[in-house]
Design a binder for these strands. Structure first.
Lengths: 336, 336
DNA sequence: CTGAAAGCGCTTACAG
DNA sequence: CTGAAAGCGCTTACAG
């Protein structure tokens, strides 16, 4: 493979000059620039990234960190949307994307991950940081790597979704349709840092309509479709008079939808079901789900922008991404 | 950050020795080994990957390449399953995973991608290589990087799904249920290298049952859910007597399911609908989809294993991953 | 079994 | 505006 030196020789200049031309440093004549670029073309020179990384301390690699916790990350469509946003932005900037999926075992991050962080291989890190009991960013910040946290810990730099507003919006929607006997399919406390705010939003909306959140029947799922079906079964059996099921994510809502069909309940005529996240599948269920769009693509995009700002030496503001109520056909006024 | 030299000084040996101990070269006394490991622990040494990469020529990075073509890759659940398999294996081996999503514009791959390939940053490449008109592996092989192709071009090393068997299985299933008036929701020729075999499998199964494939009504979709709904609408309007819809992927089948509901057709009582891929959502539609499981996780896993064999200097055999018919509730004998 | 030394291919003050 | 030279932190023949 041709090296910088080959280019320099061919162009009749020093390696320093070639290096500077290629990195767009100012201060060289147009003639020099042309000579160098020509030589680069002619011999098909491509910089060796490892060498560049070693001498400059920058690798052009940023890592996206998705801790493995309650779920196989690759099964979560929301994460994918975030990734897509990040990928698009990195592509534009010429950065490469490394995926890291550390296992969080009893709050300790795995050794491989620690090594990676400390290896000097990473210019920046974007972490999905929603696990309350452990922050995968701790070692990153300790090492001094610029980092952005998505959804979660009140890190220096973070972008998160307005979960409280999401909770208010979805609950308000149900209440305004006239529902009062609403079952909640929720998740265990402390599985996700945003859940508390979301529940608080629901609580506030309920209160505003004179309904006591604590009185509403609840089932605890784990975000999976199956757990949504189980939760719905349980709630509907114990409280056959429920007119609506509010689910904390779309996949559980899809499970609830399944269960409703199994029980012969028509949605939304006999039972309203709502989700949260607006994953792609939410638009294609039967009937399509009323849900909250978290703008995951935007989230990924904003996280990247923030990281690049950090890399440029700026101090970006943390961002809260607004949410949006998406009304489809799984919600309607109660008939009872 | 502490360097090799710091470790050497502390342990009272040369840097060469530390390096060899750390890379598990044989030939050093237990005492030396202990001294070195102790020093490493004490000063918290972590190797600098860029330096290691530059001097050894190996980076411990493998790239997973998903060309952008007919679809946003991050929307395709099948790809995710493949990724998960690859990720798991890489994690085990201590390799890092780089994601590259080159844009294929008129058969030409993008410049960023080319640079990455030639940058010396990659020890190996796994590519989703199903686009007939351009192989993203060409530059990789030219550069001499070990590479494995998933599904597609008859590259030296590849793992692909047994599409022909898949076509036979799903068509056979319909025929054995008694269907004869079967509509096919397909995709354009040359969008995906495996499609031809799949269609051939369907054709062969039809023929074995005395049915002429060419006579079956067809609609052309693009793998998206929406295109499945459109295809179903079109087929059912032009051929109201169809008793089954065979869709070339699950997402189109989900669209067909939607359309059937919209038309008030009960599935599977009045209309059988089948998919292909067995993405996670296929199990949770209403009714759950009969489909073909391609074992995507296994595919990813086998592709990684193959790549690591290549990196170990072996010559692995190309693999064909068997498929499996998954019978759920969207298929039943025709009533007409 | 261990070490001295060259070298991997860049970037970056520092001079000029 | 350009170049000589040191240095980034490792690995790897080569001696011993």
């Amino acid at each position: 493979m041709p090296t910088l030196e080959d280019v320099a020789r061919r162009a009749g200049v020093s390696t320093a000059t070639v290096s500077k031309v290629l990195s767009n440093t100012p201060y060289f004549t147009e003639a020099t620039r042309n000579k160098v670029m020509l030589a680069v073309k002619e011999i098909g020179y491509v910089p060796n990234l490892a060498a560049r990384a070693l001498s400059s301390g920058r690798t052009q690699i940023i890592a996206v960190v998705f801790p493995y916790v309650y779920d196989a990350i690759f099964a979560d469509p929301r994460i994918l949307c975030v990734m897509e946003g990040i990928d698009a932005e990195c592509n534009l900037r010429g950065y490469n994307l490394l995926i890291s999926t550390p296992r969080l075992i009893e709050g300790a991050v795995d050794e491989n991950y620690l090594q990676l962080i400390q290896s000097g291989y990473l210019d920046g890190v974007i972490a999905l940081n929603h696990v309350p009991f452990a922050s995968v960013l701790d070692p990153v910040l300790k090492k001094g790597i610029p980092a952005v946290s998505i959804g979660g810990h009140a890190a220096a730099y973070s972008v998160s979704s307005d979960h409280h507003a999401g909770g208010v919006l979805i609950m308000q929607h149900l209440l305004e349709l006239g529902h009062r006997r609403i079952g909640i399919i929720t998740v265990p406390d402390n599985i996700n840092i945003g859940t508390e705010q979301l529940l608080q939003g629901i609580r506030d909306a309920a209160q505003a309509h004179g309904l006591n959140f604590d009185d509403l029947p609840k089932a605890v799922g784990d975000y999976s479709t199956a757990s949504g079906a189980d939760g719905a079964a349980q709630l509907l059996q114990q409280h056959p008079d429920l007119t609506a099921l509010l689910c904390l994510n779309d996949r559980m809502a899809m499970g609830a939808l399944q269960e409703a069909h199994r029980l012969g309940l028509r949605v939304p005529d006999q039972l309203t079901i709502t989700g949260y996240d607006d994953i792609p599948a939410a638009a294609t269920t039967v009937p399509p789900l009323t849900t909250i769009d978290q703008h995951s693509l935007t989230t990924g995009y904003e996280a990247s922008r923030m990281l690049f700002d950090l890399l440029d030496g700026q101090k970006p503001e943390s961002k809260i991404i607004p949410v949006e109520l998406v009304i489809r056909s799984s919600s309607a006024p109660p008939i009872r």
